[in-house]
């Protein structure tokens, strides 16, 4: 499939658009519900919501094939839902219950799915970048044609290990798409105040890694960029960098009052650039869907999310014996 240069006249089917609408809406509603459960004390500790950034993972998952891998930071709920993990299991992990993906032992920041090739959920900023390069190393070693999506933020882009990973990924031509989700704030520090040059995607040039800047509020643009990057990696040319400009509507975590930016700035983004509204508008103006069709999708998503919240509330806390399990493996749980 040729890479699309523009989304002005998207060559995209109604079904495809509806899928993106549904997938993005699922993340948004799921995260709103998570925020609500946090407010009620059902979710503890840190909880980093993905609201506003939905088009990034939904667009890139549309460019992925079965067996491709993904690894990300602590802002990971959207990535898990987008790669097909069960909302019930994700929400129940957020509430620390037995039915969670990690049996309640990982929490919001540490979840994994062998089945969906989701390799975490990592709480140390940028640690997932060499890990992602390592997953790609394994794929290259095994010659299985798989690609790894390694997600990190504009904040993580200032960690030294990112460049150690870039160097080796380029040196060994690892099939790794480095996805910089630039939401413009590293916790409370704007990119302007933390990053010497504004275009992070240029930073691969020093290692010979090509990079593109992508509009992360446009799911079709993200998908097109993803396809180009994946094709590059899969053809054996080595890593690719995508700097995807996005925006998080909510604070860094639930306990962040977000005083480092104005309410107007956030509202402007929501009003003018919202990725879900954009697809909604494409669906309606293109006569691909009626208001009623979209209402039906909204209802369907609401039901899925409510069910996940019910599951997460009803699932019991892990048995106390679980404190002592999964410290050492008798056999490696994953295989090549």
């Amino acid at each position: 499939m040729p890479a699309r240069k523009t989304t002005k006249q998207p060559n995209v089917s109604a079904e495809e658009l509806k899928t993106y609408y549904r997938d993005m809406l699922l993340i948004r509603r799921f995260e709103e519900k998570a925020g609500q459960l946090y407010g009620m004390g059902l979710i503890g500790g840190f909880c980093h919501l993905y609201i506003g950034q939905e088009a990034v993972v939904v667009g890139l998952e549309a460019a992925a094939e079965e067996g491709d891998k993904r690894v990300t930071s602590y802002r990971d709920h959207g990535h898990m839902l987008a790669c097909g993990m069960d909302p019930d299991g994700v929400m129940a992990e957020l509430t620390g219950r037995e039915g969670g993906y990690s049996k309640g032992k990982g929490g919001s920041m540490h979840m994994f799915s062998k089945e969906k090739h989701f390799y975490g959920g990592h709480g140390i900023v940028a640690a997932q970048v060499p890990l992602g390069a390592g997953l790609a190393f394994a794929d290259k070693y095994l010659e299985n044609g798989r690609v790894t999506f390694t997600y990190f933020g504009d904040g993580a882009a200032n960690q030294g290990q990112v460049y150690e990973a870039f160097n080796m990924a380029a040196l060994w031509k690892l099939p790794c798409v480095f996805v910089i989700e630039n939401n413009q704030y590293a916790m409370g520090t704007s990119q302007q105040r933390s990053t010497s040059s504004p275009d992070i995607y240029h930073r691969g040039e020093a290692f010979g890694i090509p990079g593109d800047m992508v509009d992360g509020m446009d799911v079709l643009a993200v998908k097109a960029a993803g396809e180009k990057a994946v094709a590059h990696c899969r053809s054996g040319k080595g890593p690719y960098i995508l700097e995807i400009k996005t925006y998080r509507y909510r604070g860094h975590s639930m306990s962040d009052p977000a005083k480092y930016r104005t309410r107007e700035e956030v509202q402007k983004m929501r009003d003018e650039r919202d990725p879900i509204e954009a697809v909604r508008s494409l669906l309606l103006t293109g006569k691909h869907a009626t208001e009623d069709d979209l209402k039906a999708i909204d209802k369907e998503i609401k039901d899925v999310v409510n069910k996940s919240a019910d599951f997460a509330k009803e699932s019991p806390e892990p048995a106390l014996e679980e404190l002592w399990t999964d410290i050492y493996a008798d056999v490696a749980p994953q295989t090549a």
Binding site: L131, G134, L135, A136, F137, A138, Y141, Q161, E164, Q334
Partner: peptide
């Protein structure tokens, strides 16, 4: 980190 990632990946 690459070594640990490769171990996650089955090596």
């Amino acid at each position: 980190g690459i070594g640990v990632g490769a171990a996650f990946g089955g090596l």
